[in-house]
């Protein structure tokens, strides 16, 4: 009797699982196509970090600029002012108080390289290829919310348990991204006032000048 119940359950569940996998792929493809239309992006953000190293959650506010293929500026206004400007090869760090800039090469720096690749990966929207190294599940279709869990051989699995990405209604960009680390730390970034395909001033990419 128990066997029969199991078989019946399996017969009912299998068709539910199968479309879900197919659905994840098509949803990611669709999002990637829409986000591919985004050449530049400027948005305000609020990042809340729950880290074991801090007594209380840390809230960061600032602006993010992105220009494809590989430029990204992370400008923080509070609690302290600083900015990080990344291109394919270097990171420029600028202290908001002193105005001092510091250039760091990504080449040959595996930790920095990994960190930058992770940032670009999640902010770029090119998620279709992630199906090879992440278990992908669509948690909600309106607004689209996708959960990524690092696969067995994915080195990111050592640091991250899961990444949750929620998209805007028009699916042209992310509205919330949430990272859950293996040590229990979490990071949530909420984007607002999103401006797509507007020219980003050159001064953003050259903070020292």
């Amino acid at each position: 009797m128990r066997k029969t119940a199991l078989i019946i359950t399996a017969v009912w569940i299998l068709p539910l699982i199968a479309p879900l996998t197919g659905n994840a792929s098509s949803v990611l493809d669709g999002i990637e196509k829409k986000m591919a239309l985004t050449r530049t992006l400027t948005a305000d953000f609020v990042q809340i970090k729950h880290l074991a190293m801090f007594e209380t959650p840390v809230e960061i506010r600032g602006t993010i600029h992105m220009e494809k293929p590989d430029k990204l500026a992370w400008q923080v206004q509070s609690p302290i002012a600083y900015s990080l400007i990344m291109d394919g090869e270097t990171i420029i760090k600028k202290d908001g108080d002193t105005g001092k800039t510091n250039r760091i090469s990504i080449k040959g720096n595996p930790v920095m390289d990994t960190a930058v690749r992770q940032i670009k990966l999640w902010f770029s929207g090119e998620y279709a290829a992630l199906e090879q190294s992440y278990k992908v599940a669509v948690q909600s279709e309106s607004p689209v919310t996708v959960r990524f869990e690092p696969g067995e051989n994915n080195p990111a699995g050592r640091m991250l348990d899961e990444i949750l990405v929620r998209f805007r209604e028009d699916e042209k960009y992310i509205s919330v991204i949430r990272l859950l680390e293996t040590n229990g730390d979490t990071t949530e970034i909420r984007f607002s006032n999103i401006r797509i395909n507007r020219k980003i001033p050159d001064a953003i990419w050259n903070p020292g000048k």
Partner: peptide
């Protein structure tokens, strides 16, 4: 310590956290 704060509040900080401790 300020630089460590900056480092930890930047996306991708998971990869440096254990070393800065």
């Amino acid at each position: 310590i300020k630089q460590v704060f900056v480092m930890l509040t930047t996306p991708g900080s998971s990869f440096v956290q254990s070393a800065v401790k």
